[in-house]
């Protein structure tokens, strides 16, 4: 799974390439009682794309992630990953289908080691059942060894391999955020959803993170959808941006378009155009 067929310096498939989008989301929405948290959310994410999802606090960005990953079940709409219908699927099925995520408030497994946090993904593709596990058959042993090696390869992205045996909660904040990304990558995703990966990082760390995100996209050929409040980062690395306010998309386009959209400015700064 870690094998990257295209060398990193080879031409990356353009987001504008032809063909069907990898992730096709059409008009999904959810209401909690009378509160329409997200309405009519649509998105077409091509292979290898790097899109941003922004909006003021409470706009429903994380709710969108929860809908895409099956934590919440959408009331209506359509969701296709590689033409595979994901509507109504349980979160673990969606993860197996190829959507992985990180969390806004870090949700590592604190009691597991750094290595085990990453190795956990191995169970997704494990072909061995309980009996093989309990008998420790050679095939099962080989598989465990492969899972272990893959985990170390992934940890190397953020230089975490030396800390593999430490408990995850002993890492500092920035490394925990990195580990969340590594853990998500371990599931071998086609689409990676990053929920505020730069939160709480200083400007130097943000620069490194931006490089890392690009590198991950190129190396693993994943499409990335990014929620982020740091506009510098979003404008720098995202090819297209979707702006959400009060649960609806108010604007979509390239960073330059978004920056000059009066509706976006109004949503962030208030006043100006009164959105009905």
């Amino acid at each position: 799974m870690t094998a990257n067929p295209a060398p990193p310096n080879a031409a990356v498939p353009s987001s504008k390439e032809t063909g069907k989008p990898l992730l096709h989301v059409d008009q999904i929405g959810i209401a909690f009682g009378g509160l329409k948290a997200v309405q009519g959310f649509s998105l077409n994410l091509p292979t290898g794309a790097l899109y941003g999802l922004i909006g003021p606090n409470g706009a429903g960005k994380t709710t969108v992630f929860n809908l895409l990953t099956g934590v919440y079940q959408a009331d209506s709409g359509q969701m296709l990953l590689d033409s595979q219908n994901l509507m109504g699927s349980k979160p673990h099925r969606i993860a197996a289908a190829g959507i992985a995520r990180t969390f806004q408030n870090i949700r590592l497994f604190p009691g597991l080691s750094v290595l085990d946090n990453v190795r956990l993904a191995g169970q997704l593709r494990s072909s061995h059942g309980l009996l093989a596990t309990l008998l420790r058959t050679p095939a099962h042993q080989a598989e465990e060894a492969a899972i272990r090696k893959q985990a170390f390869d992934l940890l190397a992205i953020f230089d975490l391999q030396d800390r593999a045996n430490e408990p995850a909660d002993s890492l500092c904040y920035g490394h925990q955020r990195h580990l969340e990304i590594v853990r998500a990558l371990a599931t071998g995703p086609k689409v990676l959803l990053l929920d505020e990966p730069a939160a709480g990082m200083n400007s130097q760390e943000k620069v490194e993170l931006a490089q890392a995100i690009r590198k991950i996209r190129d190396q693993f050929q994943v499409s990335i959808l990014l929620i982020e409040h740091d506009m510098g980062l979003v404008m720098e690395i995202c090819e297209r941006i979707v702006v959400l306010d009060h649960g609806v998309i108010i604007s979509e386009g390239t960073p330059a378009m978004i920056q000059n959209d009066p509706k976006v400015i109004a949503a962030y700064l208030g006043g100006g155009v009164e959105a009905a």
Partner: peptide, 18 residues
């Protein structure tokens, strides 16, 4: 590990495909 991850955090565990 899948079982332990359920103990640690069910939401994250699901998101990892458990």
């Amino acid at each position: 590990r899948a079982m332990i991850s359920i103990r640690e955090d069910e939401i994250a565990s699901q998101a990892m495909g458990v």
